[in-house]
Design a protein around this nucleic acid. Structure first.
Length: 557
RNA sequence: CGGGACGUGGCGCAGCCUGGUUAGCGCGUCGGCUUUGGGAGCCGAAGGUCGCGAGUUCGAAUCUCGCCGUCCCGACCA
């Protein structure tokens, strides 16, 4: 197929919109790929939709290759399904009513609907099953941003596996992991498989795929030695050893007038901030809990939720006063009646803690001796922590989360009654997994990872066209010949036949970023040659028009 | 939801503080002539409810209030 630029709706811009920040946002808008309709709402213009479709096709092929069956489920979803799973209460769920007042959800993923259909699975003989679709998702996103990086409506490939047991789930999960890795590879992306939190999806285990990018939404924590990758929220690090003072036989009160922060406490006592502990009192439902971390650490809210097994909220000042008898800056774990959940970093050693008495702290507080906590990893990992695998240094890098895969287990099948009969005639719930990829985010990540100051450098697999022919004035017949030859050879061709100046056409070609550019100029008439250039390399090779196809093929091999 | 900023032809901006005829500039668009391998030159032209609504005033893009929208930081987040 030959696309003629003179006929295309391809509105390129010399300047990026003032509100664009991320490179992918600027370049996709400037290149005429996408346009904004509202906050987090984007139209894919013809060129952008071509790229999106190419990403979709790569995903489709790889999911089909592991046995996926493509289908399509509706966006508009009866709210009862989401009441069954309990996800109706999640704030970002779009909800609406029809004219009779019936409640509906516009889902951000389709676990409920898929499980609804999975109730038709009846026998172990039918398992495993792997179903997927590409469909529009909605989320009532509090803060869309970064062009395609965080939006309110988007297309997602989500697949769902149904197995008879955990072993089967592990196999389905691993198959997806492999498929996803092939997808990123084919899209030319650098992506890391990371530990992640399952958050609002439910289920017991989840992993993310993160693409490092200048304008990432997430933080990728990685070991300098390449043996550990994790999402920031889930990352485990080993903090540096604190400089602990001489141990005491029992805690000792010390007056600390007006000292309510870790910084001022460490300074006042002349000690390492890492030799202090920080108390974070929370309410878990009606149950008060004291979360305790090292003074120089930050509490990971995600890890705390995981450790508690349910959500929580910070205590109000009044609650703190009534539970501890002291204000927020003077709290500690000694002699409290509520449960204490201490970070693993407090396992060994003696730390300074609040005395639960305004203006006083305790030196020499030791877990196990002076208070009896439960232990868990509830601190955020920091850059510079030691890697839990090899002891190397942990690094942080902004990244885009492109995919997320979950071992859901029976989280949905049990409430939906999606069961099957095994060989023994016993009824069992389906063991499920779910697996998502955002093609538009993938597209944005490709741009983030493949661009220069002039524009995009698409890998051929997802490029809008393989070859961009720049036809300079007076060369139309030669340009047509070149285009036809490439077209006949199976390449997607964009022919810039507009009545425009050379510089403008070159600038647009660099911006749009097709992998090959063919310049047809006066040399075509003189000696039958055109200039072939790879976008990512930027050097022209003079090639006879008759040899253009083989020259392009040669550069591809 | 908290903090900050912005809203003026398609894109990028000035004007606003200190109200005063027909609201400017660059790019783009249309017509003409010239030009033609890295966003050309000259001439002419079209295109704007100054986000919306109230208010103050003889007079509001400009001052006041309210609302809406968009972006950034945070909170939140498959």
């Amino acid at each position: 197929m030959i696309a003629r630029a003179s006929k295309l709706f391809l509105p390129t811009l010399r300047d990026a919109p003032a509100d664009a920040d991320a490179a992918s946002h600027k370049l996709l808008v400037r290149g005429g790929f996408i346009r904004q309709v509202g906050a987090g709402l984007w139209t894919f213009l013809p060129l952008g939709w071509r790229v999106h479709q190419k990403v979709v096709q790569v995903i489709r092929e790889e999911i089909n290759a592991i046995g996926g069956q493509e289908m399509l489920e509706p966006v508009l979803t009866p709210a009862e399904l989401w009441e069954t799973s309990g996800r109706i209460g999640i704030p970002i769920v779009f909800k609406l009513k029809d004219r009779t007042g019936r409640d509906f959800v516009l889902p951000f993923s389709h676990e409920e609907t898929m499980t609804f259909h999975a109730r038709e699975l009846q026998s172990y003989k039918q398992l495993p099953q792997l179903w997927y679709h590409f469909s529009t998702k909605e989320r009532d996103e509090p803060r869309p941003r970064g062009g395609l990086l965080r939006v309110r409506e988007f297309i997602m490939k989500d697949s769902y596996s149904f197995d008879r047991d955990e072993l089967g789930l592990d196999r389905s999960f691993d198959a997806h992991k492999g498929a996803y890795e092939r997808i990123w590879e084919r899209c030319g992306l650098e992506v890391y498989y990371v530990e992640a939190e399952s958050g609002i999806m439910g289920g017991r285990e989840s992993s993310g795929f993160m693409a490092p990018a200048e304008s990432g939404e997430n933080i990728l924590v990685r070991c300098e030695n390449g043996d550990y990758y994790a999402d920031y929220d889930a990352a485990r690090g080993i903090p540096r050893a604190p400089e602990l003072p001489e141990p005491l036989d029992k805690p000792e009160e010390v007056e600390t007038p007006g000292v309510t922060t870790i910084e001022s406490l460490a300074e006042f006592l002349g000690i390492d901030p890492a030799a202090t502990s920080k108390a974070m009192p929370v309410m878990v439902g009606e149950r008060p809990v004291l979360a305790l971390i090292r003074g120089d650490d930050r509490l990971s809210e995600e890890k705390l939720v995981t450790a508690l097994g349910e959500g929580y909220r910070p205590m109000t000042d009044e609650e703190i006063r009534s539970v501890f008898g002291a204000g927020g800056g003077s709290l500690g774990p000694v002699a409290v009646t509520i449960d204490v959940l201490a970070d693993d970093a407090l396992h060994e050693g003696q730390f300074v803690a609040g005395a639960n008495r305004d203006g006083w702290h305790l030196r020499g507080v030791q877990a196990g001796r002076d208070y009896k906590p439960d232990f868990a990893d509830i601190r955020q990992a920091n850059e510079g922590d030691a890697c839990a695998v090899c002891g190397g240094k942990l690094l942080e890098q902004t990244a885009i989360e492109l995919g997320h895969i979950f071992k859901l287990g029976t989280f949905y099948s049990v409430p939906f009654g999606a069961t099957f009969l095994d060989e023994d005639g016993e009824e069992k719930p389906l063991v499920m997994g779910s697996y998502g990829i955002g093609p538009a985010r993938t597209m944005a990540a490709v741009v983030e990872q493949h661009h220069d100051e002039r524009g995009i450098q698409w890998p051929r697999t997802v490029a809008p066209y393989d070859v961009h022919i720049v036809a300079l004035t007076g060369t139309e017949s030669y340009a047509d010949r070149a285009a036809s030859a490439l077209d006949d050879a199976g390449f997607d061709v964009l022919l810039d036949d507009r009545d425009a100046r050379a510089g403008e056409k070159f600038a647009d070609a660099d911006l749009i970023g097709c992998p090959f550019r063919v310049t047809v100029g006066r040399k075509a008439a003189e000696d039958g040659t055109v200039d072939l250039r790879e976008r990512a390399k930027g050097e022209d090779d003079a090639v006879k028009v008759d040899e253009l196809v083989s020259a392009v093929r040669g550069k591809l091999s």
